[in-house]
Design a protein around this nucleic acid. Sequence first.
DNA 1: TCAAGAGGCGCGATTATTCACACTTGGCCC
DNA 2: GGGCCAAGTGTGAATAATCGCGCCTCTTGA
Lengths: 228, 228
Amino acid sequence: MVNTASRSRRRAPGNTQERILDAAEALFARKGYQATSVGEVAGAVGIRSPSLYNHFRNKEALYRAVLERLLDRFAAPMEALAHGPITEERLLDWLDTIVRMHHANPNLARLLQHAALSGGPGTGELIERFFRPMMMRDPRLEQPGLRALGESGLQPWAVMAFNNLVMSYVTMAPMYRDLLGQDPFGEEALERQLALVRTLLLAVLRFDGAAGAGYPPSPTPSGIDEKR
Amino acid sequence: MVNTASRSRRRAPGNTQERILDAAEALFARKGYQATSVGEVAGAVGIRSPSLYNHFRNKEALYRAVLERLLDRFAAPMEALAHGPITEERLLDWLDTIVRMHHANPNLARLLQHAALSGGPGTGELIERFFRPMMMRDPRLEQPGLRALGESGLQPWAVMAFNNLVMSYVTMAPMYRDLLGQDPFGEEALERQLALVRTLLLAVLRFDGAAGAGYPPSPTPSGIDEKR
DNA sequence: TCAAGAGGCGCGATTATTCACACTTGGCCC
DNA sequence: GGGCCAAGTGTGAATAATCGCGCCTCTTGA
C-alpha cells in the first residue's frame, strides 16, 4: 500500500512524523510534559526544532498525539476482555494481559504516572478513557467470591490496587534495578512479576470473606507525625 | 522611595527557611525537580527569587534539603521496625506503619516517584537510604511461611511489590479521585486502604506454597537467591 | 549600630514559536 | 526529454518569555 517508490536521498530515512513521535514518547515518559523541551525532541530525531513544527502544530499537539498512539496500542487487548462473564480465570487472563502490555511498552504507565502527579494537557481524557472503563462497577461478577467483591463496594478499590501494582512495577523499576541484581524488563523478571501478581490475585480471591468490613479499625501502632 | 505601599508586617509565623522548605516540598512533589522553578517556590512563600538565595545556596541545595527533611521524618518509625524477629504480626505492623506514614505525608512517595522516572540530584542516595534497607535479604524471617519467602529468593520482589502498592496509592490517587467518589486522603479512604493492604498480605502469607513453585507458566529455574 | 534578609536590576542561557527562505520532490504540460 | 509549479520538509534568525543566579542597595528588628 505504501509506495515510497524512490529511496530517499540523504533527506529522510523514514517517516519523520513517526520518528518524532517515538522520540517524544520516550522523552515525555521519562521527564514529563513540562520538563521536556521541543528542542530536545527535535535533537533526538536529528532535526532542529523549527522543523518539528512542520509536523505538529505545537508542543501540546505533539503530546496529545503521543498519548493517542499509546492509548490505541492498549485499546485492542483491553477490548478483548470486555465481554462475557467474569470468572476467576478470566480475571487471571486480564492481569496477565496488562502485565505483559505494560512490560512490553512501559511508556504509557510512565506518562500516566506523570499525569497523575503533575496534571498536564489531556489528563481528563486520560482518566475517562483509560481508568473509567476499568473502574465501573461490573455486574458480570458471577462467582461467589467475586460477587462479594462487587456487592461490598470494594471492587473499584481492588481494581485500583491491582492496577497500581502493575503500573508501579514499571514506573518504579529504575529504583530497584541495582537492588534486584536483575534487569527489571528482562524475560526472567517478567515471569517473576507475572507469578507474583497472579499469586496475589489468587490468594486474595481464595481468602474470601476478606473483603468484608469485618476488619478491626486498625490498632494504630506508633506515633506518626500528622501535618502540623 | 515613594512606592512604599506599606506592606503588611513582614514578620512571618515561622522562620522563612522553613516556609521555603514547605513550599518547595509541595512543588517538587507535584512537578518534579526540573519542572519546578525557584521563582515559583519563592512566589508561593511570598518573596522574590533572589531572596531565596539568602537561605539556600542554589536550587539543588534546596532540593536536597527537602529530601533530607522528608527522609528524616520517615526514619524514626522505620527504625522501630528494624529490630527483633520478624513475625506475621510484625509484618502487619510494618505495613500499617508505612501506609499511615505515606498517607499522612504523601510528598516523599511523590518525590521518589519523580526520581524513579526522571532521575535528578540525589537519586543515588535516595536508593541507598530508602530502598536498600528494606530490600536486604533478611535473616530474621522465623515463621515457616516467611522462611519460605526468604529462602526462595522472592523476598526482595515481595517487598518491592508491597512497597509499590503502598506508594502508588499515594502517587496515583489524583487519577482515582473522581472515580472513587471519595477523597483518597480522607479518614475513610485510609481505613479502606489499610484493610485492603492488610488483607492482601495475610492472603498471600496464608496462601503458602505461594512461593511460585507451583505455577504453570513460571518455570522458576531456581537458584536466584544469589546476590549479584 | 549592625547584620540578616528582602528586593531591584540584570546577565546569559533556554524556552516555545514564528518567519523568511532553501531545497528536494512528483506530477503535468509541451 | 526539458521546463515549471505546488507541496513538503528542512534551515537560521528573531521573538518574547522565563530560567537560575550574582550583585548591590535598602529596610528592619535587635
